[in-house]
Write a protein that binds this DNA or RNA. Structure first.
Lengths: 165, 165
DNA sequence: AGTAAAACACTAACATGTTAGCGTGTCAAG
DNA sequence: CTTGACACGCTAACATGTTAGTGTTTTACT
């Protein structure tokens, strides 16, 4: 018969790959008292300087609503500072505080060392191939979108019914 | 000076890669009324049959506390069923319902089609390399863990202080 | 048999992901 | 100058990620 088996689950594979890598860094970040997202933001700010929230969204792969909360907590703990832009009242500028920069400076050698250990375990070729392939993947544009037949898909009637209505 | 720049952020790159892929499937899943996690679980159950929660955790890369909630919601909407195992009162067995299987069967062609479009955009070599590299990465074991100097890292004193204490 | 350790699913508390929508500020067309 | 479209950061509501810890059932060892 048909049954036409689906292709491998690529998003899942990428998730597993990411977990395989990040698991070796999580202990370091936990010990430093920052989350993965906070670390991404701090790194970006220390490497690129003052940035706007929307830039951080793109660079750190964090959606705007999440970023709002993350930045609020980081401001609370004194890792970053936010200031308004005079020329455009809509925009903000986020910068790392002295405390934030100090944390990055403290963590950098540890992160680098752990990365080296990981590289040793993976081997230079795999690491090189990894960056090569992923960079190519991320650079891909213009992937067409399949049209949904409108008839297919659609479970029962669970389409956003609020509880209190 | 030193400043010793850190290596590239590999977990971030993997996150970006995953987003580049999953973004093309999210509309399909949304339209079907299931989340990414629910889809991973349904696929696993339909391809491998009845599974225990801890197996689903491993296969679908979902932590136990998250899985508890996801399965509860899926049982609520009638996509899966849970039953206890007699031989071991601790364990459970999760299986897809008729409704769950039907959803997978409906979605399969759409997912496969979208995957084909993605493959066309990426090119066969890149897809092949992608799986090759990621499979090798996931398979890596025995990565040593860097010892944290105990003195380094550690922001101010924000180490799990409860609000009501 | 009897006990300590481990396995399993679960809860709790917090942080983030995801979608929809809101309010204000900016800018361009009329 | 005004209006309408858009950009930006935000809130709201729900689902999931993450860490710590709990209660119960098994298992291993004495």
């Amino acid at each position: 018969m048909n049954e036409a088996r689906m292709p491998r689950n690529l998003p899942l594979l990428l998730l597993q790959a990411r977990e395989a890598v990040i698991s070796h860094f999580r202990p370091l970040l936990n010990h430093a008292g920052v989350t993965e997202q906070q670390w991404r933001i701090l790194r970006a700010l220390c490497e690129l300087g003052e940035l706007e929230p929307r830039q951080l969204c793109e660079i750190c792969q964090i959606l705007s609503p999440s970023l709002t909360g993350v930045l609020a907590r980081m401001e609370e703990t004194g890792l970053v500072a936010r200031r308004k832009v005079d020329s455009d009242q809509r925009r903000l500028l986020v910068s790392p505080t002295a405390k934030g920069k100090a944390l990055v400076k403290r963590m950098a050698p540890l992160v680098t060392e752990q990365y080296r250990l990981l590289e040793d375990a993976l081997g230079p070729e795999l690491v090189r191939d990894l960056y090569g392939v992923l960079d190519r993947l991320v650079a891909v544009k213009d992937v067409p979108v399949a049209r949904v037949p409108l008839s297919a898909a659609r479970p029962a009637g669970r389409r956003k019914e609020r509880a209190g209505e």
